[in-house]
């Protein structure tokens, strides 16, 4: 069943119009974990002087990846929605580089999925951003 779950999570995530628009790609979606990548894109620039991607675009990638991790948790019966999400921006992402997010649903209750994520550009020793969020869990039928 785990394989099905992975497929469902991946399909669900890839069916999101805004995720497709940003060319987000899911590298792993399994067992409460998700890894997603977003290529550099001039449309996403927040600071025209430097070419640095807008924080909101990084936040969109992290939100999507956290949601996928919540759905991919083996005990989560269905889809999810974000209750709240906090993003800490540690440094600007290097212009021209893709951003990769690793998300983990580290705790799932009957009502809430707790998820954390870290985003990197090509330098995997220094994170670009951290996210912590709570997501909804559908009621079991």
């Amino acid at each position: 069943m785990a394989a099905d779950k992975t497929t469902i999570a991946r399909q669900f995530s890839e069916a999101i119009p805004f995720a497709r628009e940003l060319n987000m790609e899911f590298l792993t979606v399994e067992n409460g974990r998700a890894v997603a990548r977003m290529p550099y894109d001039a449309r996403l620039v927040g600071d025209p002087e430097t070419g640095v991607i807008h924080g909101g675009a990084v936040s969109a990638l992290m939100d999507t990846c956290c949601g996928a991790a919540a759905i991919a948790h083996p005990d989560n019966p269905g889809v999810t929605a974000t209750i709240d999400l906090r993003i800490d921006y540690m440094r600007p992402a290097t212009p021209g580089q893709a951003i990769t997010t690793h998300a983990e649903c580290y705790r799932l209750t009957r009502s809430v999925a707790f998820v954390t994520a870290t985003a990197y550009d090509e330098d995997e020793t220094r994170p670009v951003a951290r996210a912590n969020g709570a997501f909804t869990v559908e009621r079991r039928r």
Binding site: I16, P17, F18, S59, L85
Partner: peptide, 22 residues
């Protein structure tokens, strides 16, 4: 293009976050 959940449909949470941050 700003849709997150095509079934509802609803605006993507990341778009909402981007809008508020902007």
């Amino acid at each position: 293009k700003i849709i997150g959940n095509p079934m509802l449909p609803a605006i993507h949470g990341g778009v909402t976050a981007s809008f508020l941050e902007s």
